[in-house]
């Protein structure tokens, strides 16, 4: 599995794949951990391409959040579809993550000034 990753203003920005399921969970978890360990601990996950996610996918994102917060960082989410948002709301994860419309707003919330 490959995740589209770039860094802007010390914030790591990762675009999640079209689907995040059990089949790719271990790989995605390892990639995210590596990015967090090597970066600032501030991470934006862009879910604009993600149309399907199961609880294994949620677990990947929660594990990333725990890793980020150990580094005094955080994970912000953006670009979430209505269906994936419903999954977050069902599992109350919208109370754990800050969720933004797009990368620009999420980066601004981290204190950056993104221009795309």
């Amino acid at each position: 599995m490959n995740l589209d990753h770039r860094t802007q203003e010390s914030v790591d920005i990762v675009k999640l794949p079209e689907r995040l399921m059990m089949a790719d969970a271990a790989s995605a978890r390892a990639i995210l951990k590596d990015i967090i360990d090597q970066g600032s601990g501030k991470l934006i996950l862009n879910l604009s391409a993600t149309s399907f996610m199961d609880s294994s996918g949620l677990a990947v994102i929660v594990s990333g959040l725990q890793a980020a917060r150990k580094r005094d960082g955080d994970i912000y989410l953006c670009g979430m579809s209505k269906t994936v948002r419903a999954l977050f709301e069902l599992t109350r994860l919208q109370t754990v993550f800050q969720i933004f419309d797009d990368e620009t707003v999420a980066l601004r919330a981290f204190g950056g000034t993104m221009s795309t």
Partner: peptide, 15 residues
């Protein structure tokens, strides 16, 4: 018995 919000696992049955 939903999972704790910060738990990694335990959401499958709730779904």
């Amino acid at each position: 018995t939903p999972a704790a919000t910060d738990a990694e696992c335990g959401r499958g049955w709730q779904i």
